[in-house]
């Protein structure tokens, strides 16, 4: 499974790409497969402040609904409008066109609390992510 090196990962299977204090967030390929066909994304609201680990969005499959947690604390600064009409992007391109929202991160240094690609791969391998 593909876990890009330039991203950081959470135990709840989100990734974040931080540039300055802006972080783009999505779900990992592993999560995308577990969720199966995404049919709807309840988009995060712009301007909404979220604490680290708090639900910021919901991704639905036909048979389940998954909370998507903010990898870091911050304020939602943007969301992926394209998912409104094409939620399947989350499955097709989880690290690209299927991103979920953008976060203005309160404390960028907290990035170190998240897993690297290698650590996340190991986390998945160990089965602890289930």
């Amino acid at each position: 499974m593909n876990f890009p090196e330039n991203l950081r990962y959470t135990r709840t299977h989100e990734w974040i790409a931080l540039t300055g204090n802006k972080g783009k967030v999505g779900v990992t390929e592993y999560a995308q497969k577990e969720i199966s066909d995404v049919v709807f994304v309840e988009l995060a609201r712009k301007g909404h402040a979220v604490a680290q680990g708090k639900a910021a969005s919901v991704v639905e499959s036909v048979k389940a609904a998954f909370d998507i947690y903010a990898p870091l604390a911050g304020v939602i600064s943007d969301f992926n409008q394209a998912l409104e009409s094409n939620p399947g992007l989350v499955n097709q391109d989880p690290y690209g066109a299927g991103w979920l929202f953008e976060l203005e991160v309160t404390d960028p240094s907290a990035l170190n609390t998240l897993m690297t690609a290698a650590q996340y791969a190991e986390f998945i391998q160990s089965g602890a992510g289930h």
Binding site: V39, E60, S61, V62, K63, A64, A65
Partner: peptide, 13 residues
Amino acid sequence: TLQAREQHIRRER
């Protein structure tokens, strides 16, 4: 359809 809104999936949510 749109069953992911419903109690048997979301339970307390």
